[in-house]
């Protein structure tokens, strides 16, 4: 394979020509399709998104509508960018987001197909932009610890072993991009939910609400129309933060535990003693 030249000092500027097949769709309810574009003048030092920027500048000058795609921090942490590149969410490199992908990764003359995240729970807004609010709604169902601002005890009162803290951090590093959903055959959001459940269930602060949390988040996930987990682990393979599917097992465990231990005795209402104090 001819890989676009590695940069060297001096004459490193190799120009690459590419054919892009990009999903264009004007709105959520419109018909979409793949449209082919030629781009030349592509430097191997461009990031993938800068290559799309260049295409968009061309389109704008030609009086056409630029390709809508999502991006913000462009350093792999905000979770905005969301492109399926040649059938793989975030493209051919592992452990990175689309914005961290560089054109030197692609051979000259190649055809690249770019599609949006596809899932019923992620309706297309326009072109390559999808609506990922379903993930927010799952978080709203229980992805938090209910503590008020103020009055928190000293941070060192709570001793948390280094290993627990590291495990929690591994899970918490999810950036909510939704690549796991995009990669899953069933468009399941299990890895996303598992990461949050595992993060909070691993820490003592999260324990009081663990039963309610896992139940509510799974319920919200089902409600949003995500599929179920088939344990194929495509999610892990495309996760830009390499979040482990072991957390899915942990989620299942938490769920089982909640199912078995969580069934409460019917709450006894307080005996009526009026408003007397």
């Amino acid at each position: 394979m001819l890989v676009a030249g590695r940069k060297r000092r001096g004459g490193y500027r190799r120009i690459v020509k590419l054919t892009l097949r990009i999903w264009r769709q004007r709105g959520p309810n419109e018909r979409g399709g793949l449209v082919t574009y030629q781009v030349d003048d592509i430097s191997p030092d461009m990031s993938f998104l800068e290559m799309l920027d260049a295409l968009n500048q061309q389109l704008i000058m030609a009086g056409e509508e630029p390709v809508a795609f999502e991006h913000d921090c462009r350093e792999g942490i905000c979770g905005s960018c969301s492109l399926v590149i040649d059938g793989v969410p975030h493209g051919p490199d592992r452990g990175v987001t689309t914005c961290q992908l560089y054109m030197r990764r692609f051979a000259d003359g190649k055809t690249i197909t770019i599609e949006p995240w596809r899932a019923r729970a992620f309706p297309i807004v326009k072109d390559l932009v999808v609506d990922r609010r379903a993930l927010d709604r799952i978080m709203q169902a229980g992805g938090y610890i209910s503590v008020n601002t103020g009055g928190a005890v000293d941070g060192n009162t709570l001793l948390i072993g280094k290993e627990e803290a590291e495990t929690a951090m591994d899970a918490a590093s999810c950036i909510g991009c939704g690549a796991c959903v995009a990669a899953c055959k069933n468009a399941s959001a299990m890895l996303f939910v598992a990461a949050k459940v595992a993060h909070l269930a691993t820490l003592p602060q999260g324990k009081p609400e663990r039963t309610r949390r896992v139940m509510a988040m799974v319920q919200a996930m089902d409600r949003e129309g995500f599929g179920s987990c088939g344990n194929q682990y495509e999610c892990e393979a495309v996760c830009p933060k390499n979040i482990s599917v072991r957390f899915i097992a942990l989620l299942n465990r938490e769920y089982l535990r909640a199912g078995i231990l969580g069934t409460k005795m019917p709450a006894q209402s307080d005996p009526p003693h009026g408003e007397s104090y």
Binding site: R21, G87, R120, S188, G227, E236
Partner: peptide
Amino acid sequence: LALRNRQGRPVAYAVRRYRAASVASRTM
């Protein structure tokens, strides 16, 4: 579950490449 899963993605990808899913898992 399979019927529900199928609804999870009403529009299929034009290009699809698997990284981790085994043949067995894809043909369940």
